[in-house]
Simulated assay, not measured.
Amino acid sequence: MRCDNPGTLRWSPDGTQLAAGSSQGTVVCWPVGGKQAVWQVANVGQKIQGLCWSLDGALLVVATKDHRVLCWQAQDHTEYMLWEKLPSLLRMLSISRQGWITLASSEKRLLLGSPQDPAPTLTASGQLLAAWSPIRDELATLDEHDANALTIWSV
């Protein structure tokens, strides 16, 4: 599998699986140190812009070049969520401890929603990057007007 898109390789939180997304749109998950088979997650047909795991390792979330976000349940390998026709190209994604999926977009804004929502329900403009803390209810963002301004939002 050819993975020439940065940010397409992620360990599961417990370190037992490694997920990769390719420029051709394939998502694969390899077990590490176990005897289970490789999980051929999906062939979504579009370049994988990014992927991440929920902190409990239960969900694998993938953002594609055609403005979609897909989510699978890791235990039974079933599709759990699909957001389509998002307004811009996704640059980065992160999941909070409570399960909020946060997308940093090429429009310099954040899109947020829970996996139960049919689409993102909140937006915040002016942010280039975003990452949730794995141990606190805090979101780190980078301001579009000042590359030296890192903001920590406490939720």
Rank of each mutant, 00 (worst) to 15 (best):
Q46G: 09
D66N: 13
V44Q: 04
L59E: 04
G21E: 01
K65Y: 04
C52T: 14
L51D: 06
D56G: 01
G33V: 11
W39K: 10
C29I: 10
V32Y: 12
Q49C: 12
G50E: 10
G57Y: 00
G34P: 09
D66V: 03
V32N: 09
G25T: 04
T26D: 04
V69Q: 14
A19Q: 02
L60W: 13
A58L: 06
Q24T: 05
I48D: 02
W39H: 10
G25H: 06
Q46W: 11
G34H: 06
G33H: 08
H67Y: 15
C29L: 10
V38E: 09
T16W: 02
G50C: 15
L70C: 10
G34Y: 05
K35N: 09
W39S: 05
N43Q: 13
Q40P: 08
Q36W: 06
S23V: 01
A63C: 15
V28I: 14
L70K: 14
Q17L: 10
Q49H: 05
C52R: 12
L55T: 03
L55F: 02
R68K: 14
K35C: 07
S54L: 12
V32R: 13
G33E: 12
G50P: 11
A58N: 07
W53E: 02
Q36I: 07
L60S: 11
L51A: 11
H67W: 12
V41Q: 08
S22M: 00
C29E: 06
L60K: 13
G25Q: 04
A19E: 01
C71I: 07
G57W: 00
V32L: 15
P31W: 08
Q46P: 08
V38W: 05
A20V: 01
G34R: 14
L55M: 02
G25D: 03
S22I: 00
Q49F: 02
I48V: 10
C52I: 11
S22Y: 00
S22G: 01
L59R: 14
R68P: 07
W39R: 14
L59D: 05
L59S: 10
L18F: 05
T64M: 04
K65T: 02
L51T: 06
V44E: 13
C29W: 05
V44M: 09
L18Y: 04
L55H: 03
V41C: 13
W30M: 01
R68I: 07
V44H: 06
A19S: 09
V41A: 12
